[in-house]
C-alpha cells in the first residue's frame, strides 16, 4: 500500500464528498430544524451541487477543492458559505504545494483549515459547532502520526475522532450562531454543522483510503 496519494486526477475524492452531502441533505435539514431554521441540508446541497457542475471529472484533487471552496463563498451565503468555503480553500492552498500528498502535508492542511475557521467565525471547542467535530478529528489524526501509524491508519483514527466529536455536540449548549439563542433548550440535539462536518471528513478519509489501497 502507498503512503501518499497524487494530487493529479483525483477530483473524484471531492465529488464523493459532494455526493454524500447530496444524499444526506434531508437528514441535515431535519437535524437543523431542532435548533436552527431547518435549512442546513437544503443550503449545503445547493452549494455543493453547484460546485459539482464546475468540477471537471479528471481534474486535480486540489483544483476540485478550490472550485468547491470558491463556489461556497461566492454563491451560497448564510453561515455555511463562508465557513465551508474557507475550509476547502485552505485545504486546497496547503495541499497543492506538492504533487504527492502524504500524511504530514495532510495534517498541515487540516490545521490551516482549522485556523482559517477560528479566524473567521471565532468558535471554540465546546460551542456546539462544526469545530467540535473538526478539532478532535485533527487531534486523533495527529496522535496517530506521532505513533508512527500509516497514512491509512491515521485516517481511520481521524474518522473515529470526528465521529465522537460530532456525538459530543448532543450534550452541549450552543454558544454561537442561531442555536445559541436557544440556550439550554439546544441540549439533546446534534449540531447540524458538526454533523455535516463529520460527513465531509468521513467521506474524504474513506476516499483517500481507497486511493491509498489502489
Amino acid at each position: 500500500m502507498k503512503d501518499y496519494i497524487y494530487d493529479n486526477n483525483n477530483s473524484w475524492i471531492v465529488l464523493d464528498i459532494i455526493e454524500q452531502i447530496h444524499l444526506n441533505s434531508s437528514y441535515l435539514s431535519e437535524i437543523d430544524g431542532a435548533t436552527g431554521d431547518g435549512d442546513h441540508g437544503v443550503n449545503m446541497d445547493k452549494g455543493f451541487m453547484l460546485a459539482k457542475e464546475k468540477i471537471p471529472l479528471d481534474s486535480n484533487f486540489t483544483e476540485a477543492l478550490k472550485i468547491l471552496g470558491r463556489t461556497l463563498v461566492m454563491d451560497i451565503g448564510g453561515s455555511m458559505g463562508p465557513i465551508y468555503g474557507t475550509f476547502f480553500s485552505k485545504l486546497s492552498r496547503t495541499l497543492k504545494s506538492k504533487e504527492e500528498i502524504d500524511k504530514y502535508l495532510f495534517l498541515d492542511a487540516l490545521k490551516n483549515a482549522n485556523q482559517g475557521l477560528l479566524d473567521l467565525a471565532g468558535a471554540k471547542v465546546g460551542d456546539k459547532t462544526l469545530i467540535d467535530t473538526l478539532y478532535p478529528a485533527i487531534l486523533s489524526y495527529e496522535n496517530a502520526i506521532n505513533n508512527n501509524l500509516t497514512f491509512y491508519q491515521c485516517l481511520y483514527e481521524m474518522k473515529q475522532g470526528a465521529k465522537s466529536g460530532m456525538e459530543s455536540t448532543k450534550d452541549m449548549v450552543a454558544k454561537i450562531g442561531r442555536a445559541s439563542r436557544l440556550g439550554e433548550r439546544s441540549k439533546g440535539y446534534l449540531d447540524a454543522g458538526a454533523t455535516s462536518c463529520f460527513i465531509i471528513l468521513d467521506t474524504m478519509a474513506n476516499s483517500i483510503q481507497k486511493e491509498l489501497a489502489k
Binding site: 431554521d37 435549512d39 451560497i76 451565503g77 448564510g78 463562508p82
Partner: peptide
C-alpha cells in the same frame, strides 16, 4: 439579498 432567513453571499 440572501435566501430566506439566510445571509447574502460575500460576493453580493
Amino acid at each position: 439579498v440572501g435566501e430566506i432567513f439566510s445571509s447574502p453571499t460575500a460576493k453580493s
